[in-house]
């Protein structure tokens, strides 16, 4: 039995990047979204908090932004300001696709 247990031990899972879009209000509360259920709500809340802080900091620096896009090697996060809240798009990148040149809008 011990041997079977060894073979059936859980394999390490590959971390999947979240994909989809969601809206948040000005307080960072997630309102609606199309992000898969496998993405924990706490993670969406973290993303929302950071994105809203980017918009707030831009306003504080007297350079308010309507859109912002964070481009990582594996993921693009694009966000549009919506009266203090935001709509946020999460687009994982396909490593086999031709690399896009810039913060293209979703």
């Amino acid at each position: 039995m011990g041997l079977l247990k060894w073979f059936s031990s859980p394999r390490p899972t590959v971390h999947k990047l979240p994909s989809g879009s969601f809206t948040v209000d000005r307080h960072g509360k997630v309102m609606t979204g199309t992000v898969g259920a496998d993405c924990p709500p706490s993670l969406l809340a973290d993303i929302a908090k950071e994105i809203l802080s980017v918009f707030r900091a831009a306003r504080a620096a007297q350079m308010p932004l309507a859109e912002v896009s964070l481009d990582y090697a594996g993921l693009q996060i694009s966000a549009r300001d919506m009266q203090g809240g935001a709509i946020i798009f999460l687009s994982p990148k396909n490593p086999l696709a031709t690399p896009s040149s810039t913060g293209a809008k979703p």
Binding site: L17, D46, A58, E67, S69, L70, D71, Y72, G74, L75
Partner: peptide, 14 residues
């Protein structure tokens, strides 16, 4: 947090 890989750039627009 997301393990999204290295940051390449940030774009903003108004």
């Amino acid at each position: 947090i997301l393990s999204a890989g290295p940051l390449v750039h940030i774009a903003g627009q108004n």
